[in-house]
C-alpha cells in the first residue's frame, strides 16, 4: 500500500466483503496462501472477488497473491481452491525453504534496466495458458506474467524501492462496466 501511495494512488485495506465495491483495482498481497484461501471463505470474500474478476477489475497478485489468483496450484493443500482468475499453473515454494530465499536482478520485457526483486519462499509459474504473456523468468522459470487484466509476480516488488512493476499494474485498464 505504501508502494502505491508513493505513486499518488489512494489505497484501502479490504477486510470485509462490502469494501470491495469501494475500489476499482485490487492487490492480493504476499502472505501464506493457505491462510489467505481459508480467510477468503471464512470472511465471505470469495464471491465478491470472483464477481469483480468477472466484471473485469484489474488485479495484481504477488507471491501468495499469485497462487490465490491462479487456475491450478501444485504442492498446495488439497482443500486450497484458487480463484482461477488467470490461466496459469503455479508451484508453491518452488525454490525451497527460507534459507533458499534470495534477491536478484531480473530482466523484464519492456524495461530498459533489470528489476531488483526479492523472492521469499517463492512460487513459480509452471505453465501458462493462452492469452497469458510472460514478462520475466529466473533460471528459465516464469516469475512475472499477466493478461490484460491480471498481473502476477512470484516475488515482492513492494520490498524493492523500484516502482516500475506497480506502474505496470496501474496502467492496466479495467474492462466492461467496472468503474
Amino acid at each position: 500500500m505504501e508502494a502505491l501511495s508513493s505513486l499518488g494512488v489512494e489505497t484501502l485495506e479490504i477486510r470485509k466483503s462490502e469494501d470491495i465495491d469501494k475500489v476499482d483495482r485490487l492487490v492480493i498481497p504476499g502472505g501464506e496462501s493457505t491462510a489467505i484461501s481459508m480467510l477468503l471463505d471464512w470472511n465471505g470474500m470469495r464471491d465478491p472477488i470472483q464477481k469483480a474478476i468477472a466484471a473485469g477489475m484489474p488485479m495484481f497478485g504477488t507471491c501468495a497473491g499469485m497462487i490465490v489468483l491462479a487456475r491450478e496450484v501444485l504442492d498446495g493443500r488439497e482443500d486450497q481452491t484458487p480463484l482461477g482468475a488467470i490461466d496459469i499453473t503455479v508451484r508453491r515454494n518452488a525454490f525451497g525453504r527460507q534459507v533458499d530465499s534470495f534477491e536478484t536482478n531480473i530482466e523484464v520485457v519492456g524495461f530498459d534496466d533489470p528489476f531488483p526483486s526479492v523472492f521469499i519462499r517463492a512460487p513459480i509459474v509452471e505453465s501458462v495458458g493462452e492469452g497469458v504473456e510472460v514478462f520475466a523468468t529466473v533460471d528459465d522459470k516464469i516469475v512475472l506474467c499477466g493478461t490484460e487484466l491480471i498481473l502476477v509476480a512470484s516475488f515482492h516488488p513492494e520490498l524493492s524501492n523500484d516502482r516500475r512493476i506497480h506502474e505496470m499494474f496501474l496502467s492496466m485498464e479495467a474492462s466492461g462496466t467496472q468503474g
Partner: peptide, 18 residues
C-alpha cells in the same frame, strides 16, 4: 521474452530476504 541465467548472482540470507 527476457532470458538470463541468474544462478551466480542470487543473494541469499540478505536483510531484505530475512
Amino acid at each position: 521474452m527476457a532470458e538470463q541465467n541468474t544462478e551466480d548472482i542470487k543473494m541469499t540470507g540478505t536483510v531484505k530476504v530475512k
